[in-house]
């Protein structure tokens, strides 16, 4: 099928501000939006710049705004976002500094991620038999959803609170904190909850649900944030 794709372009070496360019493209309905971007880059304009790697929704490189919605370009099919002869719009993520074309500076995002101590804290002696720590299937399930996160930033950069103030740690960092706070092997919950309870922590969340809609891994982000809020409010991890 034939259609047009309108892409937000920005060359930091020659331009003061971004502009849009429109390309005529041809694609199969089952192609990915990433395939369309590659079609433009490889057939029409090699200067188009984007991040991508695995191309099947796991590495998290190619989160961007597709028709105004945050998504992975490799996980959205053409047939779901544009009709024959129609117009597809692709823009970089909002809320992070623009670097070039569809590329934003991910450093502020990873800084928030690191701030929640995203690693297991456990100072007990390891099992004397040299084997694994035991964990029940139920305890393992308790934090499962947070482990699906691929750090693509689709959630955080869809959040109005984050757009309003980029000091807010954002949904992705809270999901990562949840993953450890509710892991019964972990002992770092108090320290993490202290970070989450601060001014730019979890209370900045206004429950807009944008994050849940944006997550390409279908993590119920808003629900996990709610559970962290509850843990802070009650002082209980349930």
């Amino acid at each position: 099928m034939k259609f047009k794709v309108k892409i937000k372009r920005y060359n930091p070496e020659t331009e003061q501000k971004p502009h849009f360019e429109t390309y005529e493209v041809e694609a199969d309905p089952g192609d990915r939006v990433l395939d369309v971007l590659h079609y433009v880059k490889w057939q029409q304009d090699g200067t188009l710049t984007l991040r991508r790697s695995c191309a099947h929704g796991i590495c998290g490189s190619d989160a961007m705004r597709i028709n105004g919605q945050n998504a992975l370009a490799c996980k959205v099919l053409v047939k779901d976002v544009v009709k024959e002869g129609g117009l597809l719009t692709v823009e970089p993520l909002l809320g992070l500094p623009l670097v070039k074309d569809l590329i934003v500076d991910m450093e502020p995002f990873f800084e928030h991620y690191r701030s929640v101590m995203p690693f297991l804290v456990n100072n007990d002696a390891l099992p004397a038999d040299g084997r694994e720590r035991l964990q029940s299937p139920e305890a393992r399930d308790r934090f499962d959803k947070g482990t699906w996160c691929i750090l693509c930033a689709a959630c955080t950069t869809s959040c109005p609170s984050f757009w309003g103030n980029d000091q807010y740690i954002g949904p992705a960092a809270i999901v990562q904190a949840h993953r450890f706070v509710f892991d019964d092997r972990d002992q770092g919950a108090a320290d993490r909850l202290e970070v989450l309870g601060q001014q730019f922590g979890v209370w900045r969340c206004r429950t807009a649900f944008n994050c849940t809609n944006a997550c390409p891994r279908e993590i119920p982000v808003t629900q996990l944030i709610g559970e962290v809020k509850q843990a802070l409010a009650t002082g209980k991890l349930e």
Binding site: F119, L120, N122, L126, G130, R131, E132, R133, L134, Q135, S136, P137, A139, R140, F143, D144, T147, F180, D183, R185, D186
Partner: peptide, 20 residues
């Protein structure tokens, strides 16, 4: 030993009913 090390680092392996 390497798989056990990963578990000790926090890797969320699936578990058997007895926790292994």
């Amino acid at each position: 030993d390497a798989v056990i090390e990963l578990e000790h680092m926090g890797l969320p392996f699936d578990r058997t009913p007895d926790g292994r």
